[in-house]
């Protein structure tokens, strides 16, 4: 059975990618997947060498043939996303590809066109195979691309005879987050003791609970505000969510990042040691199930 762990944070910038990269370097034999397709960063630490590339087609986009259009206005009236301009041109950013305009047009002036909205890459890294992607600027299909990345990761796991997939998830609680955690065996939330991070943590825990996925929490920079850290621990206890570790405020993650390394590779025994402990706790919990 392949086990999948998704690292998320709700709020961005709490250290999610730093930890995912560290886990990747500790796991040994795992497939690594970057599902933060909107602002992918993991590759900056993993330095992947691409082995193959796949175009990603999201929703089709409407296109109006001006020669056939009789400017009757039906399409514009039917479009619920405000994607058709007064001159009957489609605003590709706003178009959700629902096809209503093409349905209502009596002149057959509208066709739905394939639209490349991103790319998926399979790569090799010093820690193992890596799947990542790039969503085109202003594209909507985050959730769908995330699912595609995960599908590729599962295929690669079979190919490489691996039973673990580590996923770097996106921020927030919407479409892409849901796509990145659904069917996962464990959601690993990285948070920090600040009012915003806590607010987002509470929402993210609810999302994971909504989809009935086992969840653990790691508190990063816990020493910035010890009261808030205590609050998080208490909150997690009430929600039956395990706090698997606390990391201090440290320059190590940034310093390691500047060298393109994971915190495990960067020479600092205490920080790396704590991360290692967290990983062992999480990993043994994952395989004992």
């Amino acid at each position: 059975m392949i086990k999948q762990i998704t690292v998320i944070s709700g709020k961005g910038g709490t250290g999610k990618t730093t930890l995912t990269a560290a886990f990747a370097s500790l796991a040994g034999n795992a497939i690594i997947a970057d599902c933060d397709v909107d602002a992918a960063n993991l590759h900056l630490l993993l330095h992947p060498v691409m082995t193959s590339k796949l175009d990603f087609y999201g929703m089709k986009v409407a296109s109006i043939d001006q020669n056939r259009c009789s400017v009757c206005g039906l399409c514009r009236k039917g479009c619920r996303f405000g994607a058709i301009t007064e001159n009957f041109v489609i605003d590709a950013h706003a178009c959700e590809g629902c096809g209503v305009c093409a349905l209502v047009c009596t002149q057959e002036a509208i066709v739905m066109k394939e639209h490349k909205s991103g790319e998926i890459y399979r790569s090799m890294t010093r820690f193992g195979p890596f799947v990542h992607a790039r969503l085109g600027i202003g594209e909507e299909t985050g959730g769908k691309l995330v699912s595609m990345v995960r599908k590729n990761a599962t295929e690669m796991a079979a190919l490489h005879n691996t039973d673990l997939i580590i996923i770097d998830g996106p921020p927030g609680i919407g479409c892409s987050v849901i796509a990145s955690i659904s069917g996962a065996d464990l959601v690993f939330i990285v948070t920090e003791p600040s009012v915003s991070a806590i607010h987002d943590l509470e929402r993210v825990i609810e999302v994971a609970a909504h989809f009935r996925i086992k969840t653990v929490v790691c508190i990063n920079r816990y020493d910035i505000n010890k009261e808030k850290t205590a609050y998080i621990e208490e909150y997690c206890r009430k929600k039956d969510v395990n706090v698997v570790g606390k990391l201090p405020l440290s320059e190590i993650p940034t310093k390691a990042m500047l060298e393109g390394k994971t915190v495990i590779e960067y020479k600092d025994d205490s920080f790396a040691g704590t991360v290692q402990d967290i990983w062992h706790r999480v990993h043994s919990g994952l395989i004992s199930e």
């Binding site: 909107d38 900056l44 202003g138 985050g142 996106p170 927030g172």
Partner: peptide, 27 residues
Amino acid sequence: PPGTSCPVISSITGADYCILVTEPTPF
């Protein structure tokens, strides 16, 4: 919202100016 996808476009279109906040790291 963070990122560069659709909800960001919905948010920032129509603005007179866009301030991009970043931090001085590779990420």
